Simulated scan of single mutants.
Amino acid sequence: MELLADEYTSVYGYRKLTKMLRREHRLVINKKKVYRLCKAMNVLRSQRQVKVKHPKRLANNRLLTGSNQLWETDIKYGTPS
Rank of each mutant, 00 (worst) to 15 (best):
Y35T: 00
S46Q: 12
L17Y: 03
G66Q: 08
C38F: 07
L4T: 01
L4F: 09
K16Y: 04
G78V: 14
K19D: 14
S10R: 04
H54V: 15
T65I: 10
R45L: 03
G78E: 10
M41V: 02
T9C: 15
L4W: 06
K76W: 05
E24D: 14
R26S: 13
L44S: 03
E7M: 05
V11P: 00
I75G: 06
A40V: 02
L3W: 08
R15Q: 01
L17I: 00
R26K: 15
I75A: 12
K51D: 06
P55D: 11
V50Q: 14
R26F: 09
W71D: 09
S10G: 15
Y35C: 00
K39E: 03
V34G: 01
G66E: 11
L27S: 05
K56Q: 10
W71L: 08
M1T: 10
V43G: 03
S67M: 06
M20N: 06
P80D: 13
N60Y: 10
K16D: 07
K39F: 02
Q69P: 00
K16N: 12
Y77K: 08
R36A: 13
P55C: 08
A5P: 00
H25A: 06
H25M: 07
V43L: 05
V43Q: 04
I75M: 13
V52H: 06
V43T: 08
E24T: 12
Y77G: 08
T79G: 07
Q47G: 07
K16L: 08
K32F: 04
R62M: 08
T73K: 07
T73A: 11
K19R: 13
K31M: 03
G78T: 11
N30W: 02
L64S: 07
Y12Q: 01
K16S: 07
H54Q: 12
L21N: 05
R36P: 05
D6R: 03
L37V: 07
R15F: 02
K32T: 07
N42W: 01
S67N: 09
L27E: 15
N42A: 14
G13L: 02
T65Q: 09
V52S: 09
L4M: 11
S67P: 13
Y12P: 00
P55G: 06
A59I: 13
T18E: 03
V28I: 11
K19H: 09
Q69G: 06
I75N: 11
M41K: 11
L37K: 06
L37T: 04
Q47V: 00
E24G: 00
Y35L: 09
Q47E: 09
L27N: 04
R45N: 06
